[in-house]
Amino acid sequence: MFSQLRTMWLVLKHTFTKADTVQYPEEKPYLAPRYRGRIVLTRDPDGQERCVACNLCAVACPVDCIALQQIIDPDGRKRADFFRINFSRCILCGFCEEACPTFAIQLTPDVELAEYDRQNLVYEKEHLLINGPGKYPDYNFYHQSGIAVGEKGKGQGDQEKPPIDIKGLMP
């Protein structure tokens, strides 16, 4: 008897609580900045493409939905000639973001990826590339790596000594 009353009380109480349901799409739920949604390719603080086409995202992808090809610019910078994500296969697991050594590929809180035609879910590089550094505003991969790129010569990266004079006599 008591339990029945208690049940009724609990049910009736909910009549006066605030509803969790939101009027999507007029009203959007809050998604945290680290929410795993649509994938983007970001840029260096100086505006260059971050992606060096190392293929680590592609190999980490459990559904093999990333395909790309590396190309070397005349200044030595490596980037993707094409970079394609098939979002109709993507499971938004975020492994690619974890694998990315240059913070280029990042997942965003945008989850509105529905299309009537599956073909429209194939995103090329121009669809993926954004105009900013995303979640890591200061990171510039080429300043950390040892290769010479454009104006950054040998020994001019962070954490680097100037190049050794190999003809010098000092040990």
Partner: peptide, 10 residues
């Protein structure tokens, strides 16, 4: 081997 579901998706 990677990219199987994407390499011909274009």
């Amino acid at each position: 081997a990677s990219g199987r579901t994407s390499q011909m998706a274009n």
